[in-house]
Design a protein around this nucleic acid. Structure first.
Lengths: 219, 219
DNA sequence: CCTTCTTTTGAGAGTTACTTTCATTTTCTA
DNA sequence: TAGAAAATGAAAGTAACTCTCAAAAGAAGG
């Protein structure tokens, strides 16, 4: 049962601040909610990493985070959401939009990825790695990840692409293109999971495959 | 709740023969098992179509198919599998391998799709349409569909592509390419679900997008 | 036809992810 | 500091699975 494989980790017992932290200046209530959310997520990922996903019950997570199971489901509609929810899509959109307009679509995307990925892997490394491992390993999460790529990454990409190429937001070609990009990302994630590349090589692999897309896959 | 939207249908109460039927010459026991499997699937899809996916319980399906719930789970590991399981991937692989070797990869794929899709929509039409509607509409099934595309379509495509281009089975470029193709299929399915194309236009849309892939997405 | 072995099935009990409802506590506002 | 609004917890309920074991049905041999 690969989904219960135990993973060595050293997540802090208490939640540290994360990359895209914007706690400043929020109403107290909101700040507290964000904190609770983080606490739940951190404890959950730690437990998943230590005991496996299936072997960890929501009750255990709730206990560790010192909340009730009811509250857990108020913050995360499903157990899966704790793993697949991240905050990177809007950042990617921003970075993509900030690329100089003279770049071709593919070039802009390559520049975006080159700017983001090393950052990502550096800052929240522990969490990112647990997440990738879980989402490529546990069947339920694999499925769920796709759906989150569709709702998040694909949607955001499609919009940015349409915008940049002066097309309507529901343009079918932009849509297909965005899917191809998502495909490249998937391919890289699974290449890593299958041990074909190391984490450090992932940005290069992604860059290479984006180039391939732009070249029409001359196989 | 879109997942519970009722759909008009006229599936026969009792299972008819399907496209890829290979019941002939099998041991009696095997034949009976296949029949039971079909019966379950047909009753399930009919009920899903009539009452909605979430509103239909496994117990109801079991009752309609005149088996016990235990038996249901023996044939389909999850309720989702009843919907996402199909037999088209190996057929696609065969058709693709049968394409003349002088065609480029993309051309071979386009020819394959042009040969298969109209067939598919014609023969099992009712079932195919219920299936597409469910898999693009019900969140749980959306996620599950991706996973089945990964296990099935993507894997089969990747192998056929590697084979045709004389690469190893685990070639990373073939892998990325196969993902791009899957992306095109996804794009078409959702375009239909969003009402942007009719069922009849889908083959053309897919063909067009495959052409785009081959051209490197000149957006 | 009867016996024996194997496979398939059903019944029942148990786990867990989620849902819903309602009373209680906590935070915000006046 | 009182009262409104929002967040929480407790508890009961549903349904998708899992496991175990005994009964029934098909296969094979005499």
């Amino acid at each position: 049962m690969p989904q219960n494989r135990t993973m060595s980790t050293s997540l802090p017992e208490h939640p540290a601040d994360r990359l895209s932290d914007r706690l400043a200046g929020l109403p107290l209530r909101e700040r507290k909610k964000l904190k609770t959310r983080r606490t739940i997520q951190d404890h959950a990922l730690r437990l998943f990493g230590a005991q496996g996903y299936d072997a960890t019950t929501v009750e255990q997570i709730a206990e560790a985070a010192e909340i009730s199971p009811s509250t857990f489901f108020r913050y995360f509609p499903t157990k899966e959401d704790v793993v697949v929810t991240d905050e990177y899509d809007p950042i990617m959109a921003d970075v993509l939009r900030a690329q100089p307009p003279e770049l071709s679509m593919i070039e802009a995307l390559r520049a975006t990825m080159r700017a983001m990925l090393p950052q990502m892997f550096a800052v929240d490394q522990e969490i990112v790695m647990i997440r990738i491992r879980l989402t490529t390993t546990v069947p339920a999460l694999r499925a769920r990840t796709f759906e989150s790529l569709r709702e998040g990454t694909h949607t955001v990409l499609k919009e940015a692409v349409a915008e940049r190429t002066g097309r309507p937001g529901d343009d079918l070609e932009a849509d297909a293109f965005a899917w191809a990009i998502v495909g490249v990302l998937m391919s890289a994630m699974y290449a890593w999971m299958d041990g074909k590349v190391s984490i450090e090589e992932m940005p290069d692999l992604i860059d290479h495959n984006l180039e391939l897309v732009g070249a029409g896959f001359p196989l």
